[in-house]
Amino acid sequence: MDKYNFNNELAEKIVLVTGGIKGAGKAIAERLAQAGAQIIVTARNQPETIAANFTFIAADLSTSSGTDLVISRITKEFGGVDILINNMGGSETPGGGFSVLTDKHWEETLQTNLLAPVRLDRGLLPYMLAKASGCIIHIASIQGSLPLHDSTLPYAAAKAGLINYSKGLSNEVTPKGVRVLTVSPGWIKTTSAIRMMERLAESSGVTIEEATKGVMDSLGGIPMGRPAEPEEVAELVGFLVSPRAGYLTGTEYIIDGGTIPTV
């Protein structure tokens, strides 16, 4: 007999997935719901469709007022969360290298990809620490160690900071019962990735196919020959937050189809 009931292993767990209405975030939320968790998702705008059993909170997490709103609502309605998936992130900076990037580009990217997770952790960790139980997953990126300079340098720098912060936080709170882990995907087949290719194509005067090949080449190629499906990332997260991964903490898990060429 299996030690764990995989289909119900997150029963009675309350989970927050930021950016949980599309792409990898949506896949993660659905995967954890299948494991029996009660799901809260956030995004700036109300989605057209959302699972009936999900709680949705509209908030701009790139601002301190947005994170404060989410923390306040969760604290009042749920007491806190058992699992926090800091998934929200992205890059909206233009192509053209470092010289076209303004202070505003840098500040907005750092707010979204680094400071939003920091603020949410700070607001929601006390509940976990009081219970001496919980798990935080920071969704970073392989760009944290394999940066692309043309249009996503601020994003890469923010994700590198997130990886380092995640390790430091783990060292502090793991002895108190809270596990902290980082998942760093490579290229994921999402609508955001498609939009990035469109921006690169427009700024470089090439086709989307040529822009896509350029990114593949800049990554050194993907041995798997394709980007990851959101569900593949979600499956890794589903394992890491489960009781089966109870001894795992402070570690970065890379899911990139073999993109990073070093050990």
Rank of each mutant, 00 (worst) to 15 (best):
Q46M: 14
W187Y: 11
F54M: 04
G238I: 06
L219Q: 12
S72F: 05
A201T: 07
I136Q: 00
G66R: 06
H138S: 07
K3P: 03
A193L: 06
E92G: 12
A52P: 06
L129R: 02
S91C: 11
E210N: 10
G220T: 13
A158T: 01
V233S: 02
A130I: 10
T112F: 01
E107N: 10
I85W: 02
N113E: 10
A158K: 02
R179L: 14
I83P: 02
I163P: 04
R119V: 09
L129G: 01
Y127N: 07
G250K: 09
Y127V: 05
D2C: 09
Y127A: 13
Q38V: 11
K176W: 08
K3W: 05
I255W: 01
A157W: 05
F56R: 13
E235F: 03
V180C: 04
V183C: 07
R199A: 05
L153E: 00
K22M: 13
I74Y: 05
N164S: 15
K22Q: 15
S218P: 03
G20T: 01
R122V: 11
E9T: 12
I208Q: 11
I254T: 10
E92M: 12
I208V: 09
R199M: 09
I254A: 04
T55P: 00
T49C: 13
T112R: 01
T251V: 14
D68I: 05
A211I: 02
K167Q: 13
K213V: 05
S91G: 12
P230N: 07
E77N: 14
V118H: 04
A43K: 05
I40S: 10
Q38T: 15
I137Q: 00
E232I: 07
K189E: 14
R179E: 06
F239H: 04
V183I: 11
L69A: 15
T49A: 15
I136P: 00
K13N: 01
G205W: 06
A140W: 00
T109D: 01
G20Q: 01
I28S: 00
L146Y: 12
V178Y: 05
T42P: 01
I194M: 10
A59T: 05
I50Q: 09
E92F: 12
M88N: 10
K22V: 12
C135L: 00
K104Y: 12
P243Q: 11
I40K: 11
P126D: 02
S91K: 02
S133A: 14
T75V: 06
E198K: 14
S91F: 05
I50C: 13
V215R: 02
S192Q: 14
A29H: 03
P261V: 09
D82K: 06
R244S: 11
T67Q: 03
M216L: 14
N53L: 06
F54S: 01
L10R: 05
A193N: 09
G36I: 07
L32I: 11
I139D: 01
A160S: 03
N87T: 07
G225K: 03
S170K: 00
D2R: 14
L240T: 02
G205C: 07
M224Y: 14
R226V: 03
T75A: 06
A193I: 03
Q111I: 04
S99R: 15
K167L: 08
I71R: 02
E12R: 15
T182C: 10
N113V: 10
Y155V: 00
M196I: 14
I83H: 02
L16A: 08
